[in-house]
């Protein structure tokens, strides 16, 4: 049993080794810590912005998505969307927004776990945090597409505006509106977290791989099972 556990979490670092190569073992831990901080900070920052410009809105309309809420001119945009039969934005990704904080905390804990797991399984723990930015954009696209393609056929303007897929990033347009969408700082923090986690794994591997190999070697030499 303990062998399974130890093969999962990998070898512990002998105290003497830690004492003599502190930097080597602490570096991945600190990088993971920085990654976790990035991800936590991202909760408070906008992930995505969209600006909608039209002649009668000289200051533009703005939509901002945080992981757990939408802000900006949501009401006005919903009001306009009703003309083309698009459902209110608040109905999109309701589950994701409700779960987002817990999911992020879980990812933070998993990355924290990765710092303590000194085997290749650590990669598995960090995988959610690494893929999170991609998952976010995929989910955003999914909802935009779903909403854009399922317009109410009985809406006032449904004869003039056909179902469409709104632009997730970059310039788009609908009716007299031009839309500009881009990632917000929170998203870049999440990307930074993913990046740091990957960098962390370089140092993680550099620190623990030799240790792991040495132990396996010694086991083999002792004639035990690998």
């Amino acid at each position: 049993m303990s062998r399974i556990v130890s093969s999962l979490i990998g070898p512990r670092v002998p105290a003497a080794e830690l004492q003599s190569h502190t930097a080597r073992y602490l570096t991945p831990t600190l990088i993971f810590m920085a990654a976790r901080i990035m991800l936590l900070i991202s909760i408070f920052l906008p992930y995505w912005h969209m600006e909608l410009d039209a002649p009668q809105y000289p200051n533009g309309l703005f939509l901002t998505a945080h992981v757990n809420h939408l802000s900006g001119d949501v009401k006005e945009i919903d009001g306009l969307n009703h003309y083309i039969g698009m459902r209110p934005l608040g109905e999109a990704a309701a589950f994701e927004r409700a779960a987002s904080i817990w999911v992020i905390i879980a990812m933070v804990l998993l990355v924290e776990g990765a710092a303590f797991v000194h085997s290749r399984w650590a990669v598995l723990l960090a995988l959610p945090a690494v893929t999170f930015p991609v998952a976010f954009i995929a989910d955003l696209y999914f909802w935009m597409r779903t909403f854009g393609l399922s317009l109410d056929p009985d809406a006032p303007l449904s004869s003039s505006v056909k179902p469409f897929v709104p632009t997730v990033i970059g310039e788009g347009g609908i009716g007299q509106f031009k839309t500009y969408a881009e990632f917000g700082s929170g998203y870049w923090f999440a990307v930074a977290c993913a990046g740091l986690t990957i960098v962390g794994f370089y140092f993680h591997r550099r620190a623990y791989k030799p240790l792991f190999d040495r132990i396996r070697q010694s086991r083999l030499m002792a004639g035990g099972a690998p």
Binding site: L30, M33, A34, I37, M38, I41, L45, P46, H49, E51, D53, N59, G60, F62, T64, G72, Y180, E182, G184, S185, G186, W188, F189, A192
Partner: peptide, 25 residues
């Protein structure tokens, strides 16, 4: 240093976000 960098990053980005939120193209 890392923490400081992160914190500075937050502040810069926060200011960014505020401007970003209301920037008119």
């Amino acid at each position: 240093l890392l923490c400081a960098a992160a914190a500075t990053g937050v502040m810069v980005c926060e200011a960014d976000a505020q401007q970003e939120g209301r920037r008119r193209r």
